[in-house]
Design a protein around this nucleic acid. Structure first.
Lengths: 250, 250
DNA sequence: CGTTGGTTTGACTTCGATCAACCAGTGTGG
DNA sequence: CCACACTGGTTGATCGAAGTCAAACCAACG
């Protein structure tokens, strides 16, 4: 299941947190050089995950959290009756698996959407270390709380926004995440299918296509295939806040 | 803003965690008697909150988390353009305010839906104490992670269920929470309005009314006003899993 | 009693789902 | 090398679930 294949074990890479490019977004954010060094001792190696393969599956026991080093993942949850939904997209600097803590078991599948590298962090060691390093505890708490805030925002989106507004909000979120990682916030490539986006936003893939068409017609974005160019960020923002044409449903 | 009024200060009640009725659901769950005693030292008093008044507002700085002792709360978030949405309902044993940690600021308003009592827990002291008491840290992590799981389930609900299924899921959730608190899981009183429920589930209040009517027509529940009687729990569960009439939208 | 806030029900509209056709790449095997 | 299947994306036509608007109802309360 989530056991790394022999080939990926071979690919294990020894590197430390201090020299990591996404260091400032990850667990070690705001920690001293010494403390970061100590964090490195419990993340001894990186793991390669091939595009399309699973890092872990729903039901797998929680051994490690995974910090995404490079690459892109989606997490999906399936309900009793087999319906599946995308619950998140993760990129460099994101911490994966924190929803597993309450039951010592991953509730989601994690699938790589491109060839990726993650840093497994043994959870027991992490808890132990966070007791000794208050900045690490604080960092962990921050990440937990951010995830909760992100989910609340997501709920707000699903509860109050129209399909087109959701799509705009999705693009804006991607844009912001690209920016904080030092990439262009206006030109980037989507790693997921329309169906993934739809599932994430609570819409059908056809609706995603149509929403994109509308945003394109308004001259806000230029999207062909998975290549996104945001032509007017401020217009996108206004659109979400109802300036497009409010007095609508919801 | 979130400063307790003089009258509520007068009402401060000195009690400890060990003797609390919702002790097993709250922070002290799974902790030894000694450790629970230590937890009590940082929650020296309870606070009364009158029905309809706010415990804190969005934007207030994070000083304390609040464990609900008795009563019922809703938390609401408002977006830039003034639209407001209910993000959660909290009852005895629930911990309120954990979404404030990432920004040291409450992102939500917290409103009492009936006369309530909460135990403020100074967050800095809590962090300090959790370093010394691993069971407390574990308890905190469990609560964080549970909140994340709950939100994921909520997102799944909003993304995949019809209005009637959402209403059924909502009633089932309330039922489960009543059960874990030792109350009847089949007969209880709702503390919130139809509009609150609708906001929480991403629906209009009229749709809530109609959904209730449908569940009633199916003989699953008997709801008049805010008094709920669940006539057939298993039927409700099946209904959510598509046995009602799948092949529908979404 | 009249006011008020919350709930219910009806008539109509509309957004997004469904179903279906079609297109563009991209492998794959004969 | 070309026919073919296959996956992912786009667009159109139709339909139904839920939103909107409106009216009536009810209980609580001053």
């Amino acid at each position: 299941m989530n056991v790394p294949s022999i080939s990926s074990l071979k690919q294990a890479i020894k590197k430390n947190c201090s020299s990591c490019q996404v260091h400032e977004l990850c667990l070690s954010a705001g920690m001293s050089a010494d403390d970061t060094e100590r964090l490195s001792t419990i993340t001894p190696q990186r793991l390669r995950v091939r595009k399309g393969s699973a890092l872990y599956h729903a039901g797998d026991p929680l051994r490690s959290l995974y910090a995404v080093h490079v690459g892109f993942f989606k997490t999906t949850m399936s309900s009793e009756d087999g319906r599946e939904q995308v619950t998140g997209f993760l990129m460099g600097g994101d911490l994966m698996g924190i929803d597993a803590i309450s039951n010592d078991m991953h509730p989601c599948h994690s699938i790589a959407l491109e060839d990726s590298e993650v840093c497994p962090v043994n959870f027991n060691q992490l808890q132990k270390l966070s007791r000794e390093l208050p900045p690490l505890q604080h960092s962990l708490n921050r990440i937990f709380s951010q995830e909760i805030v992100r989910n609340h925002e997501m709920l707000q989106l699903m509860g109050t926004l129209s399909a087109e507004e959701r799509m705009a909000a999705f693009l804006l979120d991607m844009s912001n995440r690209m920016r904080t990682r030092g990439y262009s916030p206006t030109t980037f490539v989507l790693r997921m299918t329309r169906e993934d986006i739809g599932s994430y936003l609570g819409l059908r893939l056809e609706t995603i296509c149509r929403a994109i068409a509308v945003l394109r017609d308004h001259g806000m974005v230029s999207i062909s295939g998975r290549t996104v160019e945001i032509l007017c960020l401020s217009q996108l923002i206004q659109f979400i806040n109802g300036v497009g044409h409010r007095s609508h449903q919801r």
